[in-house]
């Protein structure tokens, strides 16, 4: 049984029908990428799963229906979400930001503050600095680390490399690998095919609010039609 299962998911912003029957699933510890052009509804998919945008349809996590729960309940059930806008909490230090990732009543975690300081020495150096003062890359690391502090079993990461330098992209990729090594499933929303294809086990391609293709990275690389129709600009 899949860890996270999305079945006929529909979502709306007011009257506009954004998600039109999305079906997808992620297994325990699996890395899955969600690809697609701008504006097709990838972020909306994450937000619906998180309950931030009201979902219509069925979303099950570990076999339990979570559609209709409040975002904090969904988070507490074990789903993590790193949104695309890197919203660190201004006015709070890096350390405080990290600590807020710990959920109320959370037990032993696979992650500690120390893990992230080791992965990103920058964060250790700047742990007492206002998070708003970090660079874009550092903020991306911080928001990912913050979500992981809550010890999710699956984490949805929305465009983590957008606008980052190649070195920073590499850091992100390192973290993604570290997450995978710890048997945590990832739903990665990406533009940059290289990273996505390198680490993913499976990919979904989204177009106009629906999943239009599913396969392995190799299959996608070999399918020029799909790439041209749904991915390349």
């Amino acid at each position: 049984m899949a860890l996270l299962n999305v079945n006929q998911l529909n979502a709306y912003y007011g009257k506009s029908h954004i998600l039109q029957g999305v079906n997808m699933s992620i297994d325990e510890g699996e890395i899955v990428s969600l690809l697609g052009r701008n504006g097709v509804g990838r972020s909306t998919t994450c937000k619906s799963i998180m309950g931030e945008v009201p979902p219509k349809g069925s979303i099950t996590f570990r076999g339990k229906e979570i559609a209709g729960l409040a975002p904090h309940q969904i988070a507490q059930s074990g789903i993590g979400y790193v949104p695309e806008n890197r919203d660190v909490f201004p006015g709070l230090t890096v350390k405080q930001n990290l600590n807020l990732g710990v959920k109320p009543g959370q037990g032993a975690s696979r992650w500690s503050e120390e893990d992230f300081y080791e992965l990103f020495p920058n964060l250790r150096e700047r742990q007492d600095v206002d998070a708003a003062a970090l660079s874009g890359g550092e903020q991306q690391m911080l928001t990912m680390a913050r979500t992981l502090m809550g010890d999710p079993d699956v984490v949805m990461i929305d465009e983590p490399t957008e606008g980052l330098s190649p070195q920073m992209c590499q850091r992100v990729a390192d973290l993604l690998e570290e997450i995978a090594r710890r048997q945590i499933a990832i739903l990665l929303v990406e533009q940059k095919l290289t990273i996505a294809l390198k680490i993913s086990k499976r990919v979904y391609v989204m177009g106009h609010g629906q999943i239009v293709y599913e396969g392995t990275p190799e299959e996608l690389m070999n399918n020029d039609d799909i790439r041209q129709e749904w991915l390349e600009v």
Binding site: A70, P71, H72, P83, D87, F89, G91, N99, L100, G150
Partner: peptide, 23 residues
């Protein structure tokens, strides 16, 4: 800690929810 959660929720209530806090 409650104070920090409140401060964070002042600017980013959704993100705070997504971290599992009952906003």
């Amino acid at each position: 800690r409650v104070g920090m959660i409140i401060q964070a929720a002042l600017t980013h209530p959704n993100t705070v929810s997504n971290l599992g806090h009952n906003v």
